[in-house]
Design a protein around this nucleic acid. Structure first.
Lengths: 217, 217
DNA sequence: AAATTTGAGTGAACAGTGTTTACTTTTTGA
DNA sequence: TCAAAAAGTAAACACTGTTCACTCAAATTT
């Protein structure tokens, strides 16, 4: 995918960049963006804090790269499901399930990926939202699958697949967020556990997809 | 609602507490939890930073109170909709719309309210999740309304209203979060605007509620 | 009324944070 | 070989939340 860089100097530079990112990734996965400090990171890779700034303009830029990599992970996994030849209904549910599962496995990544600070008032378009981003690619996969559902008659014919995809994504996102920062979700109290988390994910997926379906049995 | 406190000393203390919270509220609404610093807050109310700690154990505790107040706001507004005598279908949609609208008006509050840091691994129950909290009250209102839908035959009879409420909430939450931190949502690019935000909120509400409905027209 | 205790409020410090600047060392290319 | 560019650094700046020892005034107790 990425073209090899020419000079050995540039290759070396790229390697160190990767080393920084790798160390950052590990801390980030465990403690999130707040737990990841430039000074700690510098110590981990035996550099001075200021050295990091020869490779990244700011901590935000560094974290943005971690996020982008995370989106690639989502895209890969969702694509793998979409390309399967399992029945459409099951495939849809798997898609939702996989998406949420990734959020569960890397909660800090997921929370950070969708938390480019909450903007009060008119906001400037964030870098992540640029055309052709991994985020957008993932979205296109989803809307394509919904269009397929419409085409084969599983979903209502009047559905705009792009609009529906946005709605579905919002619903998935909501579940992922709930699970990520309410540790006991879907139970609120610790003791009561009427349904396991995985069961609830399937239930939610079902609920969401049912909103698109043409007729019920 | 709140019982008057006895001694004038306690009243005075309560007053200052309120003054701190009020100042905090204003900064928080504009700039969120990160923009709100103890030192800035102290300066706003002409106190030393250390003085704040005579009234709040920590910044987190202070912010938690802002969050609780915010949940009260949600609860009040949603309750007002639920108690209306408008037709059930319309009422459901209004409920979703109102919920999301509040998130839009106070994006920082909303984002913070659901962001008791993302926990990797087993988490301890957060204070907000205690029994009888405003959060739980709001949830009960929602599940009550769904039960009503089942009772009058609008929703499928086999629906567990508590489970469904959790799913619906997740879907609402997702939309709210999307809007709150993707400034251009539901459009990804700035230029393209096939549907207004308010229209999309209604569309999403429709989609979500349709998942519960017994039969379609 | 005097003495004592409680609580409010403070300045200074501790231990962090992201980031920049001036500086030295190393590497690279002509 | 030698100048130029890049890598790396120590120290400082401007912040952050929080704590500690302290003062001073108000309320309680004797």
């Amino acid at each position: 995918m990425t073209a090899d860089v020419s000079s050995p100097a540039e290759r070396r530079r790229h390697k160190i960049r990767a080393r920084i990112l790798s160390a950052a990734e590990q801390v980030f996965a465990r403690e999130g963006a707040d737990g990841l400090s430039i000074r700690r990171l510098a110590e981990n890779i035996d550099y001075s804090p200021a050295a990091i700034y020869k490779y990244f303009k700011s901590k935000d830029e560094l974290v943005d790269e971690l996020k982008e990599t995370f989106f690639e992970l989502i895209l890969e996994n969702v694509n793998r499901i979409v390309d399967t030849s399992t029945p459409f209904a099951e495939r849809s549910r798997d898609c939702v399930g996989t998406y949420v599962q990734i959020a569960i496995e890397k909660p800090h990544h997921y929370a950070a990926a969708f938390a480019g600070q909450a903007s009060a008032g008119e906001g400037v378009a964030h870098d992540d939202d640029r055309e052709g981003s991994k985020k957008e690619q993932a979205f296109n996969v989803l809307s394509g699958m919904i269009q397929e559902g419409v085409d084969i008659g599983a979903f209502r014919s009047e559905i705009d697949s792009v609009l529906a995809a946005k709605s579905i994504w919002a619903s998935m996102h909501g579940l992922a967020m709930m699970i990520v920062h309410i540790p006991t979700f879907p139970s609120f109290q610790l003791g009561q556990a009427d349904m396991t988390r995985d069961e609830f994910i399937l239930f939610h997926a079902d609920q969401v997809i049912r909103g698109l379906e043409a007729h019920h049995g």
